[in-house]
Design a protein around this nucleic acid. Structure first.
Lengths: 181, 181
DNA sequence: GTCTATACACCGATAGAC
DNA sequence: GTCTATCGGTGTATAGAC
């Protein structure tokens, strides 16, 4: 298994268990790599694994969300395109958000800056679409924050209620909610 | 320190670090009780502490949220009363939600049933207010889910962005959003 | 009830053979 | 690169004195 393939497996552990719950035993089992192999790829250990996972997510966001939002289609279409990929990355609402999971406990201090940057990049790109759609800058920012907020809340509720329909509902109405006059 | 006073301190540890991150060292430090004392109050250890903390929260919700929602004032006033206590329990958005924190990792399996019950009790009580305000049952349930969802999402965003203003905004507009025609 | 001491498993991390 | 073996530290939990 290559380093990039390993990272994909590491992500699933970090976002299911969080940083403190992501033990080397779990990371080793998920990747199929022994502990020594993990330390070969990530010499600084677990913290470097989490950093690599965050960088991987940052690239994914740029390519699969931000690029679409900066696209040339109609605002409505760009937001729907985002929704499609959001639905995919969160596995229809079954999987937690890595950013949210690394924002808790002691990992909060370790990764807060990077998490904040990624979240802001997402919000800003979404707000920019709304500005192009004719909204005032401040209102666009508020609505963009609201969209991310609802996605995150839906993921929390999905786990707590064991029901992903609120997540599906949020994604469904996102375009209309964001662009309403 | 009495058992009830200890529980109040345990809550803050569990909701900051989650179940796996809530080590006995942290629980001991927060309560000021030595490990042996903690095991005197909670013979079954950490799992019993978390259960006690969840029961404590369930009682708090009943007394400080559900009772208000079942009150006799106007729907608009009951929802505002709820918002006031929600703002308090989450410390203006600074503190995470215990239910959300215990919904992750291995604690999910341990406490899922109780967490689901508490969330549903909250949603149902809120939906009932909306029904009394004239909304159709299904729509009331959707809006109530939406309210909890937004509160949870705002708490996630508050940690990720290090900014509680979205949380304040959500609480502010809750009454109008829930009761709009 | 609270203390000290301790048992045993697991944690992250490293060493060295291959 | 991956393996086994192992280190020091910390995890939960317990025992027994006071």
């Amino acid at each position: 298994m290559s380093k990039d393939e390993a990272i994909a497996q590491l992500i699933s552990v970090f976002r299911q268990y969080g940083y403190e719950g992501a033990t080397l035993a779990r990371l080793s089992k998920a990747t199929g790599l022994g502990k020594a192999s993990l330390y070969h790829y990530f010499p600084k250990g677990k913290e470097e694994m989490a950093t690599a996972v965050l960088n991987h997510l940052s690239v994914w966001l740029e390519e699969n969300i931000l690029a679409l939002l900066r696209g040339s289609g109609k605002p409505d279409e760009r937001i729907r395109a985002m929704g499609k990929n959001v639905n995919q990355i969160y596995d229809q609402g079954e999987q937690a958000c890595l950013l949210a999971m690394l924002s808790i406990g002691e990992s909060h201090h370790l990764f807060h800056t990077q998490i904040q940057q990624v979240l802001n990049a997402w919000i800003n790109a979404l707000a920019q679409v709304l500005v192009e759609a004719g909204l005032e800058t401040g209102e666009a920012r508020l609505r963009a924050e609201d969209a991310i907020l609802q996605i995150q809340g839906a993921l929390v509720l999905a786990r707590g209620l064991n029901d992903t329909t609120p997540f599906q509902r949020v994604l469904q109405r996102l375009p209309k909610d964001l662009l309403k006059p």
